[in-house]
Computed example of a mutant assay.
Amino acid sequence: MVSTAKNQSSVVMIILLGFSDYPELQVPLFLLFLTIYAVTILGNVGMIVIIRISPKLHTPMYFFLSHLSFVDFCYSTIVIPKLLENLIVEDRSNSIKGCITQFSIGCTCVMTEMVMLAVMAYDRFVAISYPLLYTVSMSPNLCSLLVTVAYSWGIISSIVLTYSLLVLSFCGTKIINNFVCEYSVFPSAACSDKHFSELILFIVVNLNTFCTLIIILTSYLFISVTILKMHSASGRYKGFSTCSSHLTAVTIFYGTILFLYCIPNSKNSWFVVKVGSVFYTVVIPMLNPLIYSLRNNEVKETLRKLMDVKIISQ
């Protein structure tokens, strides 16, 4: 089966319709997505640079945040340039190899981000529940290990899902009503039995979503208990504000995923699904650095100092 897929992959083409149903919106959408991509790159790369050059931000929380920004940078770079290309060219055909490559890298980023968000929730739990032991508990070695686990699990999950696609046979040219090579594209383009691939998808996606959500919800349950036990109102406010950025990012990320899975698969819902997919693949990588910079006093303070230094130097 694998050899069949490989032999046929050189002639099989997938045409992603994208937003071709709305020709009058091609140019406005191109400008919109180009602006979003520029903001995403500037925000995530800027966040990484600020964290690296500011000694005050050399803490476990910002260490994890820098890696989250790196993952968002990679994800937007694998998705948005192809989306922009499809908005300005008439030939929207893609080779099956190119589509699988885009899916594989994108899948690695998504799975890694899930684990990274769970790791960041655990970090907030330790910081609030055991503040005196925080520095010892979240040692540099443990932080590096947790980040390595996040990347490793993302790569392993991607390899498993990619293998489940390579055992499919593809034939002919398939027209797909989508703008990105996500998993649903391949069963639609396959001309062989899809049950094995769909079973692997069900297991991997649900395992990742369930496990990371359990870690996040459990962490915030203990965080809430700890904060509510605090006697001072200022202490409770500081505790909740410490978690607000991460909680906002988690709510948007998982809320969008659950929203997309709850949409019925019908022709009438395709536009809604596309809008949801755009938010998930394009907007969220842009929002994360904005959420953490706008809602975090330490990042804003560092930005102000850098701006002051730049103004003085000029």
Rank of each mutant, 00 (worst) to 15 (best):
M1D: 03
S10W: 01
V11T: 10
V11D: 10
V12I: 05
V12F: 00
I14T: 00
L16V: 09
F19I: 06
F19L: 09
D21E: 04
D21N: 14
L25Q: 12
L25S: 11
Q26W: 08
F30H: 04
L32F: 14
L34W: 13
I41A: 06
L42P: 02
G43D: 09
N44F: 01
M47F: 14
M47Y: 05
I48Q: 08
I48A: 13
V49N: 10
P55K: 07
K56F: 13
L57R: 10
Y62V: 02
H67E: 09
S69C: 15
F70K: 06
V71N: 07
D72Q: 08
F73M: 15
C74Q: 04
Y75M: 11
S76A: 15
V79I: 08
I80Y: 02
K82I: 03
K82Q: 15
L83R: 05
L84G: 05
E85N: 14
E85Y: 14
N86M: 12
L87K: 12
D91F: 03
R92N: 04
N94A: 12
S95L: 00
K97S: 02
I100N: 00
I100E: 00
I105H: 02
M111N: 12
T112D: 04
V115E: 11
L117W: 08
Y122I: 12
D123H: 10
R124Y: 08
F125N: 04
V126W: 11
V126I: 14
Y130T: 05
Y134C: 02
T135V: 13
S137L: 15
S137R: 15
P140A: 05
L142E: 01
S144H: 14
V149L: 09
Y151I: 03
S152F: 11
I155E: 07
S158C: 04
V160G: 00
Y163A: 07
V167W: 01
V167E: 01
L168N: 02
F170H: 01
G172A: 04
T173K: 05
I175N: 09
F179H: 11
C181M: 01
Y183V: 01
F186R: 00
F186N: 00
A189M: 01
D193M: 00
D193E: 08
F196R: 02
F196Y: 08
L201V: 01
F202R: 13
N208Q: 11
N208T: 13
N208S: 12
T218S: 10
T218Y: 13
L221G: 13
V225T: 09
T226G: 06
K229M: 15
M230Y: 03
M230E: 14
H231E: 15
R236H: 11
F240M: 08
T242Y: 08
A249R: 02
V250Q: 03
T251Y: 08
Y254T: 03
Y254R: 11
G255P: 09
I257T: 07
I257R: 09
Y261A: 06
P264K: 13
P264L: 09
N265C: 09
N265T: 14
W270H: 08
K274E: 03
V278P: 03
Y280K: 04
Y280D: 04
T281C: 10
V282M: 01
V282H: 09
V283D: 03
V283I: 15
P285S: 02
M286V: 03
M286K: 07
N288F: 13
N288I: 13
P289N: 03
I291R: 04
E298K: 11
E301H: 15
E301R: 11
V309D: 13
K310G: 06
